[in-house]
Nucleic acid binder design. Structure first.
Length: 127
DNA sequence: CGCTTGACCGGAA
DNA sequence: ATTCCGGCCAAGC
């Protein structure tokens, strides 16, 4: 696997962290979702941005400050990507009353709508 | 200097 | 459901 980096990684990462800080307790966002909330840096082709920005978000989360709720950012499948610390991430999310089914979170129930969006009540249980 | 390795995603096979 | 592929940069060893 190989991929480019943002023109200014530090500046891009800070935008990622800024958004991650706004994800409420008990909600999750996907890497791609965060990426879409950030405009493509100047000079970056839109197709290229669409292709790589989710990875840039991943890189940003790998280096995030301690005050960022990194556990609330997961992949587009509603799962936690395999890596050291994944177990800890799941524990933190379960502590936020988020339910896992087969290692997967139901994004229709728990996905954050975005900055400024009103939170809708989560369904307590799906039977 | 030359590999190797990334907290991704959507579409194709 | 599952695996494979393109995208083609930069830090670390």
């Amino acid at each position: 696997m190989t991929y480019p980096s943002p023109p200014n990684p530090q500046a891009y990462y800070e935008q990622v962290w800024q958004l991650a800080l706004q994800i409420p307790y008990g909600r999750v966002a996907t890497y791609g979702q965060i990426a879409q909330m950030i405009p493509a840096p100047a000079g970056i082709d839109l197709d290229e941005y669409t292709a790589f920005s989710p990875r840039w978000v991943g890189s940003a989360m790998a280096a995030c400050p301690n005050d960022v709720p990194w556990q609330r950012v997961i992949n587009s499948q509603g799962k936690i990507s395999k890596r050291p610390g994944a177990e800890k991430q799941r524990q933190l999310l379960e502590a936020e009353e988020i339910v896992f089914v087969k290692d997967k979170i139901d994004l229709k129930v728990y996905q954050w709508r975005g900055p400024g969006a009103e939170d809708t009540p989560r369904q307590a249980r799906l039977l």
